[in-house]
Write a protein that binds this DNA or RNA. Structure first.
Lengths: 146, 146
DNA sequence: GTAACTGCAAAATATTTGCATCCTT
DNA sequence: AAGGATGCAAATATTTTGCAGTTAC
């Protein structure tokens, strides 16, 4: 059963790659499957821990960059200089992300989640400013940790 | 006249340091005066460029850390792994920041501003989540660049 | 005088780049 | 076969740590 789930993720990864016109390689499949497996967002370090023996650190950098460039994955800014990455649910076009959900970082488990159902609020800016992307990051305690 | 303004910032820096029970040293005065002079938020690199010949890089790291710890300055997360720092307007207590303004990053000039008048909105979280700090970062074009 | 701060050296960590080789299409 | 992806080595950049000397109070 578990095998089946894993196999499913692998297949799903492959489809996502093809759909985005990226060549299907081991590292891309692996990293994408890891994203699918995770509930939350992951960092470069998380991937490295999981795959250090299988892929080069540099490959992970390049793969993540490719995913971000192609709109498969978006970054979540944090205050501690450790960028996290999460799968885009919608079809984000090349170079243009249009996720409008907020992000949640749990103070207890330190996991980062995309709250897909919570839409970023309208922000009223002072005269003269025009808004593009709005990023909301909430820190608190997640439903599993309370 | 310019001299007077500068001298004023120096004096102001000294007062802030004393008020926060920090010893008054050259590097702290300099960095604090730099914050006062800036409209926007600054990065470690900005300070280093300005003061590389006067202070050690390590001193800048430690000074910034001290300021954050003591609540003089808060950090602004960015998506490109380059933390920015800005003065706290309110009296933030040791270890506890309570700024509730949003941050704005200009796509043109790449400056980061604290929009002190724009209050962070209430966010309605899904059942089970409890919110602590809410960070809002808006990207767009600032009033000087449009 | 004492505790705290700084500079310097060095270690540890993180990220980027060039290039030869291998793999996907 | 051709272009793209990977691994490896090395260059760069960033951040942390230890310690000895200096400074603020």
């Amino acid at each position: 059963m578990k095998q089946a789930v894993k196999a499913n993720r692998e297949q799903q990864s492959e489809e996502i790659l093809k759909h985005n016109k990226l060549s299907v390689t081991d590292s891309r499949k692996f990293i994408l499957a890891f994203f699918l497996q995770q509930k939350g967002a992951i960092s470069h370090g998380d991937i490295e821990k999981k795959a250090a023996d299988r892929f080069d650190r540099v490959t992970i950098y390049r793969t993540l960059q490719t995913f971000v460039d192609r709109g498969l994955v978006h970054t979540i800014p944090t205050a501690d200089n450790s960028i996290r990455y999460a799968l885009c649910k919608d079809d984000c076009g090349k170079g243009e992300h249009h996720d409008h959900h907020i992000h949640f970082i749990c103070d207890k488990c330190r996991q980062t989640f995309c709250l897909d159902d919570v839409v970023t609020p309208e922000i009223r800016l002072p005269r003269g400013y025009s808004a593009g992307h709005v990023e909301v990051v909430v820190e608190g305690v997640c439903k599993d940790c309370r």
